[in-house]
Design a protein around this nucleic acid. Structure first.
Lengths: 343, 343
DNA sequence: TTGAAAGCGCTAACAG
DNA sequence: CTGTTAGCGCTTTCAA
């Protein structure tokens, strides 16, 4: 509504200080060609009047805003939170502040079109560069620096940071196979995402490498959410010949597995080995073994990359691939009689 | 840098559509007085060109932006995260999007002055209203709607949501006293915060009410962080006559207590009862008993209040006081020989 | 139903 | 060293 009623403008400052608007602007921007005395007066008036320059007006003249834009679909999601922690840290150590944009809901407007819209909104208007988390678009039409964390697709046209999903899945599988498991269930991620695809490949190839025949019944279709993890787990455990271990495509899914197992009286890890992927806090505190894809580091690195871009420095690599690491918190040997809902 | 090189402006749209700028503006703002045919053409051009209106320019003419501003000191802090979850949910259910501003670090710029600055930045320029988390300022000079979540001070001049800190502390103490504890250590919160003050009062009064004499040695000065919680816990446990229970001013502090105890081989809750305050995820998964001040709900409610303000509706109450509730996850009876570092 | 024109608050030449 | 001036992209009178 009355956004600007008693707002103090540069004009007010100029008038009060008895100088011209441009002089105030010079002081504001630390130009050198201002008399010490003038500068002092202007600064005092600015302070007295409590003047804050209008971001809108300032950025309309396409100047530096010292603001980084961050686009996140849902800031309540553990995955987003971990990444945000890393970005937050990089921001804290810098001269930039952070402007995070969210619609609050992945489903509210989750199209590539909408993404482009938001990126344009931020980059064209008020930020010096943009980080976008889990971007769906293959390309962004903007001249402003942009970096993506964990893009949905394989080879986007913009700089990005993503995890070595195939390698991570292989780590998870090697771990389970080494424990002696032969029947390992898989709960996949969202069909349309590159990461899910890579993790699935890691699952398949690891089995082949270990000489274990793939049983299609052991592969279920999840979507990176706990409810799906819950359903898929029940499905797997009600099989005539259920798995002795489950590789969940991400931690969120693994939490669903955890809940389903608890409900069925099947203990993790005593009765069933479970490995997730992400290493979010929840999984950590639940004692779940996970493949750590260093979410926070991804956020941190992406921010650093963006800083370079903003400063006009070249990037060492357009795509930064994060290695993964297995964080073993629990483990179990496969049982003679695998857990099952029917037993 | 080149923020606006190939940016599509309203002028481009007008030219391509063969109409005037004002006509495009009318279409953009859903004015009624536009010919259907014209409207259709303009919309098609907007789509073709991938036009996104400049937030900066638009908000300079002080129009509605459909954006809520949120000011948070540090988005990596568990406390902030819980509150953000609630705000995120309210946003998801609304027509507004969220623009979160953070410096990334409480210490980077944590003055009331700086707060006013950021609020002005957002409210004067680009948002329809602002939510500020843990505000320090007693007053904000802005005509834009503003709501604070958990303000630092007692009676701010702006609408806010805060927890019943005194009541919560009393709940924690009653719980511990009912368990039979007589020597209850207290790790206080940040000296300068109203909430810490209230919790301390709750501690004192509960002792008095139970007829337990207050031992000054059992009161330590924390600051709502885990390192402080850690130090204070060591201090308390090295007392000649150590406490059998500890009331930590918040969960973050309780986590520090948890860590110190673990390090000393003192088990929680078997050897030592601990109650925190906040109910953040970490504490939850650690099995710590906490006083739930419903952080997410506070965020949610604050956002609802802001919506009302933006729509010009009156507030039922300028200050919303959240009740608290004890979430018991662990408990122990006081031992004959209380745990101590020296034993 | 549309267009022309006046600014919103600010920065960046260009004069002085 | 400082003031004048011309816009940035947009909305909003005011005429046509």
């Amino acid at each position: 509504m009355a956004n600007k009623k008693n707002a103090v403008t540069i004009q007010d400052v100029a008038k009060t200080a008895g100088v011209s608007v441009s002089t105030v602007s010079r002081v504001l921007n630390n130009k050198v060609d201002v008399a010490d005395e003038t500068q002092r007066v202007v600064l005092r008036v600015i302070d007295e009047l409590g003047y804050t320059s209008s971001l809108a007006a300032r950025s309309m003249r396409s100047r530096k805003t010292n603001l980084i834009g961050l686009v996140v679909p849902d800031i309540g999601f553990p995955y987003s939170i971990e990444i945000m922690k890393g970005i937050n840290q990089a921001i804290a150590e810098s001269f930039f502040d952070l402007l995070l944009y969210t619609t609050g809901d992945i489903h509210k407007n989750a199209t590539a079109f909408r993404e482009q819209h938001v990126v344009t909104l931020l980059s064209k208007s008020i930020t010096d560069g943009v980080i976008i988390v889990a971007s769906a678009a293959a390309d962004f039409q903007t001249d402003a620096p942009i970096v993506s964390v964990d893009p949905h697709i394989a080879n986007p046209n913009y700089p990005c940071v993503h995890a070595k999903n195939y390698q991570g899945a292989a780590q998870a599988m090697e771990y389970l196979i080494k424990l002696g498991h032969r029947r390992i269930g898989f709960i996949s991620g969202r069909r349309d995402l590159e990461s899910a695809d890579r993790r699935m490949s890691g699952y398949r190839d690891s089995l082949k490498k270990a000489g274990i025949e793939l049983d299609p019944m052991l592969i279920t279709q999840g979507d990176y959410t706990s409810p799906a993890g819950y359903d898929c787990t029940r499905e797997l455990l009600s099989l005539p010949n259920p798995p002795t271990a489950i590789f969940a495509a991400n931690d969120q899914t693994a939490i669903g597995t955890y809940q389903a197992a608890e409900e069925l009286g099947i203990r993790i890890p005593e009765d069933l080995s479970v490995v997730g992927f992400d290493n979010i806090s929840e999984a950590k505190y639940m004692g779940l073994t996970t493949v750590d894809q260093f979410l926070a580091s991804m956020g941190f690195i992406a921010t650093q990359m963006l800083f370079r871009l903003i400063n006009g420095e070249p990037l060492d690599e357009k795509t930064h691939k994060m290695p993964t690491q297995l964080v073993e918190r629990t483990s179990c040997q496969p049982k003679k009689n695998p857990p099952s809902i029917n037993t």
